[in-house]
Amino acid sequence: MNSDANPILTLAWTFGVMSLFAVGGANAAIPEMHRLAVDVQHWMTDKQFADVFAISQLSPGPNVLIVTLIGYSVAGVAGALVATLAMCGPTAVLAYYVSRFLTRSSRSRWPAIIQAALVPLSIGLMGASGLILALTADRTWAGALVTAVAAALAFATRLNPFWLLLAGGCLGFAGVI
């Protein structure tokens, strides 16, 4: 649609809108990021998207920084900054005003009802993220096995996730996956 528009403006618009729809946080918005970045805008391939997700998990900081990486691949450092601010800004402003409003009228029970209602939605979205990323990342049976073992270990133990990522990287380097 707006493929010949300025990429920076497209980034700002895309992530600014996504910011307000990202119920359940950044990881729940991954299907939408994948749809827009790979299928709609053709900013990156499926494989590059999986790589970008891996890098964002490897680096410290909030999960939302996957948009920094997408922005960089579209328009360099400026793209990285614009994508990050667009994804964080609108919702941050909203959060500021809603929290001021709620501290003034704290007796309302609507926040609790809305929150309870949105929980299944955000889990469903995160599940969809998991499926889409598994389809792009797990190209071999060994890869799918690594995913399954990492999921089981992270679910059942309190192991620092960093070690699981490191183990995955080592297995990949060894050519197992």
């Binding site: 990881n27 998990q57 998991g130 990342a137 990492a150 999921a151 679910f155 995955g168 990287g169």
Partner: peptide, 26 residues
């Protein structure tokens, strides 16, 4: 490339475990 492929497999596993953890109360 190979390292990142391995990391992304593990990272997807972490995401799935977070989904299961959130589903448990339901």
């Amino acid at each position: 490339r190979r390292i990142l492929a391995g990391v992304s497999c593990a990272a997807v596993g972490l995401l799935l475990s977070a989904v299961f953890r959130m589903m448990m109360p339901l």
